[in-house]
Amino acid sequence: MTQFIQQMINGLHVGSIYALIALGYTMVYGIVKLINFAHGDILMVGAYVGFFALTAFNLPFGLALLAAMVLSALLGMAIDKVAYKPLRNAPRISALITALGVSMFLQNTFRLLFGANPRKMPAVFNVQPILLGDLRIPPLTIITILLSGACMVGLELIIRFTKTGKAMRGVSEDSKAAKLMGINVDRTISITFAIGSALGAVGGILYSISYYQVEPYMGMMPGLKAFVAAVLGGIGVIPGAMLGGFVIGGVESFTKGYLSTTWADAIVFSILILVLVFKPSGILGKNTKEKV
């Protein structure tokens, strides 16, 4: 029983990180119908910014987080402007290939700049874990879950109650109609990229602290798993991404705990395939009929 609860806590920990990253995928997909392959690498950039802020500049964690969020948001907007915007009306496969290209570009540029070897992320919340009976709850886990929760609530508030959020909902529903209503579609898309990337940066920093390292290819696996989470929850649906993230985190940690550590990733991808086969719209997604 103790192990079960322990795995559950681990699952919540990684799950909340996946959920944060999945939000970026789902928001961008919801608004421009593009799988932003570069999102995983934006989280890598965020982690690097956090790493340098913590080590080279000795900033406190909060400021490092803020710096990573701001820079990643700017990067996300820049990528959208340079690479995706010219392809807004091109076939979707072109935009997707471009996204792959951006992803490769970020990974290899960072490898070029900072080398391929992983760097050690400082242990930020290196305090004694809280012991509850036999349970060990590291403070990092609590902070991760709280921070992710705060980000999600913040996002929900922005989307539900601000004018920008309303614009985002409008554009994702029907961008042409939104344009006719006087919504600045390009600006809304830009803001979506910014928010998604900032959340990704938070996820990236938390991920790199949890696994103690940053390296240029670190974004790939969490990026892919977060994508699986977004699809599982129903891509384009924001609560779906959160739910999917926690489910994937839980599955991963229970597989690692009870079955096998080596097969955990394979099982996550098998889930993706199964979901797409039996319910391609995801848990919370709604079915859409294709019109001629």
């Binding site: 799988i35 394979a266 395939i273 391609p280």
Partner: peptide, 26 residues
């Protein structure tokens, strides 16, 4: 199963499939 899906989903499924194969071979 995968070809029932539209373009970008298929890409992701094949991507996941490639990873599963790699992990299986290991």
């Amino acid at each position: 199963p995968a070809l029932r899906l539209r373009g970008d989903y298929l890409g992701i499924v094949t991507l996941g499939f490639g990873e599963i194969i790699r992990i299986a071979l290991l």
